[in-house]
Amino acid sequence: MRRGDSPGALARSVALSRQQRSAELTAELRPAGLAWRQNGHAVLAGPLARLAANCDRGFTVLADVWQAEPEEHAAMIELAGLERVDYLASFPHLATFPICLDPDEVNLKEFTGREPLDAGGAVRLTGTAPVREVLTPAACYHVYLHHQGESLEGPLHLTTRNTCFRREAYYEPLRRQWSFRMRELVCLGTRAEVAEFLASTTSMVDALCRELDLPVTWELATDPFFQPARNPKYLAQRLQPTKREALFGDLAIASTNLHEDHFGAAFDITRDGRPAVSGCVAFGIERWLYAVTRRHGADPAGWPDVTAAALRVVAGGAP
């Protein structure tokens, strides 16, 4: 920023820089299968799609160490359940809602009786049905709803993957997307069981990054709360950090999260007669693609086999 530039000029400069970076990355990775939609969605095809699948298999190799049960959940989640943890008050800015037309025939006729889109490409909605769901914002939320009311006899290890949706102020391919793929490993149990899970899995992620020659540093982090200074959960995360992120440069490619009994209490999941403690390890799959391609180049021939690397990590010393 030059002396005398206004904040507006700086913002335009930053936006231009991001656009340029997005364009360069997209051009560089197009032969490998990347296409970018300006509204925040990436298309992965061919080699890049195979690398994404390879990364995900590598993460499930780490999950297998815990004999984690796989779960496949829907793309959306009921807000009546999620609101037990005040999701919308904490993250309204990130939420994306699925919306449907009111099925009343008169309403549908009115909708079909005119051009469905306006000049800007926005849908000219008529009456809409009540919105009761949100598109999945993080893969592991489903797990707590699914297991609500359970009394656990031992630690419960699960793994799930979902396409997640987070509305952001801007988007960049593979770095910050409206829709992206997230693999999570989850543990519900006592505090000691969850602490062991997080510590051991963090070590495995560290080892995996070394195998892949991805330089990462771990830093404390907080979730991106709305109006954080007013949110007790944000204040608690600052005072008693429970989130750590593995940073490739300035980009978080994985995180470990200790939820304490936040979800166990909200969803009546118990262990040893007390609300279960939970923790998760999350992998942003597109971000791993970014890290691998920045480190090893755009040519698929130079990419490491992530699954094989994970198998070497596990063979080298499972927890």
Binding site: E168, R175, R176, L220, A221, T222, P241, A252, A282
Partner: peptide, 11 residues
């Protein structure tokens, strides 16, 4: 004195 970082696209 370990500051926590927060950004808009945390995982």
């Amino acid at each position: 004195t370990v500051p926590a970082r927060s950004r808009g696209a945390s995982l």
